[in-house]
Design a protein around this nucleic acid. Structure first.
Lengths: 229, 229
DNA sequence: CAACATACCGTCGGCCTGGACTGTTTGTGA
DNA sequence: TCACAAACAGTCCAGGCCGACGGTATGTTG
């Protein structure tokens, strides 16, 4: 049988289906970013994905189903990227500074580079990613949309838990203060990220993050309260 | 002429106009809270305000104009309440604890009550107010709505500046670390407030705020890093 | 090869939205 | 007292949205 003819790369149904599915989800996230949740209509998504209307509703029978799928997809991506970055960080710290791969802005002259620096980078990288804005759209929409709400609650709780566990793994969790400090860091950077909605330049945001990075050792008792500013 | 007949409390045009205007704005904020920005239609607002359709469009010729007015109105209210609370706090601290008026949850047994406790209360009261959720709707909507964006940017910058100045006034601004710590507090509590979108109970939120309250003295050098948790 | 299942496509109707329009009542100035 | 302005009210229309439906092409199974 001429099943696997290389000249004609006829994909199987499963492959085709998965491909268009991801195309739809990518298009939806992009629309969420550019147009927001309310303006992310089926027509908009269909046009971006380059599909026909019926195709869209074949994969996702309703708009709500599409949004639910986006929530799960985005959460999975975020956690995947997070784990990837954490793994890279773990390998880098295992090699104990073989080379300045990540290269933060300024050479940290006092301390080589604590696990907390990596932790802050980890959280900040997640929140600075444009996809966070898409997540924000979904959060706010979920507040008044029961369908979204019912699925977004559990998903985001899992995300939070995984983020905490991952970050705690980077800094080491023997200290009882770690959990609270991770929470501080996540909340503080989240709040700072909100500033981007009002001030898109993000200059104030960067300054706050940098100062928080220097304040953390004080709360751990590794630095004096007079030195962090 | 029967102009000022007390039995018929006929309000002047200016009074009537102002009254319906605030009714419309109140109804819009309420709808923003319950239904969100996208579902806050003219019909919804009209129905809540108990007015005819034409009346609404007489005061606010377009939906965008209505939202702009809401942005300014809500900002003014927030700042008004903030100043009021700050004034009450200043008077209370001037009387130097004549009575436990505000009465926070637990008796702060170590320290009587620092200015920072009041500052945290001030920020937290603002963010815990339901109207913050309405503001959040407008923030997120403004990200993809140029009309809203152009007016919300300057307004919120003014709000930020006023909040910082007010809070700094409560704690005293001789210490150079005050500005940064106020920023930390605002951002941290803002991020914690975001958690309510996912976990409406807000239990985690309260815990974080309480711990931040105890962490602040450490960053000011007034407490040891081992004592705050 | 035949029959079926599934991916893909285009069109239609019902619904709701925002804004324009005309008409009515009430206050104010000449 | 009269004339004008402004608050208030009801109706209409174009446009966009979602979801249902019937139809076609492609892959899979017996």
């Amino acid at each position: 049988m001429t099943a696997t003819r290389p000249s004609h790369p006829r994909r199987s149904q499963a492959e085709r289906s998965a491909a268009t599915r991801t195309r739809v989800l990518d298009a939806t996230v992009a629309s969420l970013l550019e147009k927001g949740h309310a303006a992310t209509t089926l027509a908009e998504v269909q046009q971006r994905a380059g599909l026909a209307r019926g195709t869209l509703l074949h994969h996702f029978p309703t708009r709500a189903a599409l949004m639910v799928a986006v929530v799960e997809e985005v959460a999975a991506r975020r956690l995947g990227v997070l784990g990837e970055r954490a793994g890279a960080e773990a390998r880098a710290s295992a090699h104990e500074r073989t080379g300045p791969q990540t290269g933060p802005q300024t050479d940290t002259r006092t301390d080589p580079r604590t696990g907390w620096d990596a932790a802050v980078d980890l959280v900040q990288a997640d929140l600075a990613d444009p996809v966070f804005l898409a997540v924000l759209e979904l959060w706010v929409a979920a507040r008044t949309d029961p369908d979204l709400r019912s699925v977004l609650g559990p998903v985001e709780r899992r995300v939070f838990a995984t983020v905490h566990a991952t970050v705690a793994g980077v800094v080491g969790d023997e200290d009882p203060r770690v959990a609270t400090l991770v929470q501080f860091t996540v909340d503080l950077l989240t709040g700072a990220a909100m500033t981007r909605l009002v001030d898109p330049s993000g200059s104030a945001q960067a300054r706050v993050v940098e100062r928080w990075r220097r304040a953390l050792p004080v709360l751990l008792g590794r630095a004096d309260a007079d030195t962090w500013l």
